[in-house]
Amino acid sequence: MIASLKRADNLATMAPAARKAEAALTFDHVTVRFDDYTAVADASITVGDGEFVSIVGPTGCGKSTLLNVAAGLLEPTAGDISVYGKSLEGLNRQAGYLFQADALMPWRTALSNVTAGLEYRRMAPKDAEELGRKWLARVGLNGHHERFPHQLSGGMRKRVALAQTLIMDPKIILMDEPFSALDVQTRVLMENELLALWMADKKSVMFITHDLEEAISLSDRVIILSAGPGTHPIAEFVIDLPRPRDVSEVRMTPRFVELHHHIWETMREEVLKAYERNQHKLAD
């Protein structure tokens, strides 16, 4: 109660221009330690208001960990995470989170999974259902409303999860390798759909992927993480490809190829480093 009052107060007193300039997410020297393993060390990242930022890094480096910090599900061991300039306490209420693992409720149908958040928000069931149907159609799942998650393929489940998150109309979208389970055609479809949504009302997106091409074709900025332990950003690249983009067409442009080549050179060193470390581990 007190927290929400404070927030309302802040918004009222803040100048609109100042609010606009505030970054959606600011990781300020964030360190995350699990017992004696330091997953993330001294990572500083910002995601601007309305910006689409991709985070690319080798598997197991701590990408999901960073996203959990942004969601407020995980408190950093050191450092601070702030949302629109306010230090985050508890869950990030302005963010929608598309988890890497299956997160649908197995006992609910596709439709009722999609409308779960609206139900929590106490929207009238009829309105929620109508909106839910719209969203299922949008992710290409017309006619699968009454299916349960175990009756859907992995890709279909991912699309239900996408609808479930986006139906809440969050200002910030956190996505953890959302499209890696999809087949190529669906993937391109969903990527374009995501871009359209993002363009329509300028959401701030923090997008995790291990696919560099996907990162470049979607983002305003791509941040490369070092291999773990002690993961932190090692480079970032502004993607100046014109918008609106078609993710499959943009990949054919010379500028894309150039960017890809440039970023890949930087990444390769990191990948090699991680690979060598693993070889050492295996040798021990």
């Binding site: 869950l91 988890f99 409720m105 929590y120 809440m168």
Partner: peptide, 22 residues
Amino acid sequence: SPVVLANARMLGANRSQLLRTV
């Protein structure tokens, strides 16, 4: 499942809603 739980919380479920729906 901790992921299902975290997902419901991110979707805005409060304690009693978590009890009822998860």
